[in-house]
Design a protein around this nucleic acid. Structure first.
Length: 337
RNA sequence: CGCGGAGUAUAGCAGUCCGGUAGCUUAUCUGGCCCAUAUCCAGAUGGUCGCGGGUUCAAAUCCCGCCUCCGCAA
């Protein structure tokens, strides 16, 4: 089949890779223009663009497909049977949807109609879902509202992170789109409309979404630690320095080891909080209090206790809690600089 | 040439400003204590101070170049 591929990041590149390996004829690729990225501010090609160029596939990078007549003309003249879209980053206008003979098929990283929108993978982890999956659907003018073609369910692991689920769903997505295209060529697809009453919508995850609110429950924060990994990561501030938390465990407050000692109190800006507040219980047990026991680090949360297993100070490498304590006790206590 | 931090023993750090015998915690090994222990005590092993030049009687430290890692920003 002659296929136009539209996508941008890693997730899309994996789908494209699978299509190429399966022997499909990719006649044209559309992806986002090169964006500044990385430490030196240089514009970088998207993953999809790199892959396409490696295989000698023509690439277009329309800033706004909606008003880019040249790109539309290229699509028309390609004579494509179908367009496969994965994390393209632009809403497709209706006239574009109609260009390929069989329309545009989207690979979406959730079990639609759940998690329509931009960050379905992270939200599955953030919400503690037991399963997620991938969906292929016939695109229409809405945001992930088209008829469902096929779905594949993927179970989540207890320690699932955004990154690990991403890996699972991209390979499942690749598998599913190949199957869907096979079904399409055999005329066996049965599009099913989505049940809008079950729909949920998720927005793009932003850096700020990784900022931990210690008033939340330990359970929720631990999910956040996993869901925001590897980006934007769950973080807090200690003495004004950003600290990312990479691994954490959930405990009950009663499980705080007896020998533990209070180290410091956190709040949003990393300064010592007002201890005269009218919160319940001892001030050292309010949400955001850090306790140290031997080589372990604990933080009181709104509900429960979070043990920090591995973390990363800004400008530093990720390290285990015991390693962190080894050389940072002075910093924690504020004695250092 | 976007802004900034960092590279010192297995690991985490101090020391660099102000040049003068390589330090701390941990790990490892040995011994002690103990019914026993991830506890405690004593001792030992272990480092081309990222790489290459330069200055100097003398460089982890000062100067120049390079490599690598990381945070921000996108």
């Amino acid at each position: 089949m002659r296929i136009i591929f539209m996508g941008t990041p890693d997730f899309a590149a994996k789908i494209l890779q699978a299509l190429i390996q399966a022997g499909h004829d990719i006649v044209l690729t559309l992806t986002q223009p090169d964006r500044p990225k990385g430490r030196h501010g240089a514009a970088q090609k998207s993953e999809v663009r790199k892959l396409s160029e490696d295989y000698g596939i023509p690439v277009l990078t329309p800033e706004r497909l909606k008003s880019d007549e040249a790109a539309k003309e290229a699509m028309r003249s390609s004579g494509a049977d179908v367009a496969v879209v994965a994390a393209f980053g632009q809403l497709l206008p209706e006239d574009v949807l109609a260009i390929p003979k069989h329309g545009c098929i989207n690979v979406h990283a959730s079990l639609l109609p759940k998690y329509r929108g931009a960050s379905p993978i992270q939200w599955a982890v953030l919400n503690g879902d037991g399963v997620s999956g991938v969906t292929t659907m016939q695109m229409d003018k809405g945001m992930d509202t088209g008829d469902i073609l096929e779905q594949l369910i993927v179970p989540l692991d207890d320690k699932e992170t955004g990154g690990s689920l991403f890996e699972k769903l991209s390979s499942s997505g690749a598998e599913l789109i190949l199957h869907t295209l096979q079904s399409l060529s055999e005329g066996k697809l049965e599009p099913k409309p989505q049940d809008d009453s079950l729909a949920s919508k998720v927005g793009l995850i932003k850096k700020e979404d990784g900022h931990i609110n210690w008033d939340d429950s330990a359970i929720r924060i631990e999910r956040m630690v996993r869901g925001m990994n590897p980006w934007p990561s769950a973080y807090t501030f200690i003495h004004g320095k950003q600290v990312k938390i990479w691994e954490a465990g959930v405990l009950e407050k009663e499980e705080l080891p007896k020998g533990a000692s209070f180290a410091l109190f956190l709040n949003g800006d990393g300064k010592m909080a007002d201890r005269q507040g009218k919160q319940e219980g001892k001030p050292e047990e309010r949400p955001g209090s850090i306790w140290i026991s031997g080589e372990r680090i604990f933080v009181f949360c709104g509900t429960g206790l979070l043990e920090i297993l591995s973390l990363q100070m800004e400008s530093k490498k990720r390290m285990k809690a015991d390693d962190f304590l080894r050389g940072n006790m002075a910093f924690l206590k504020g004695n250092g600089q």
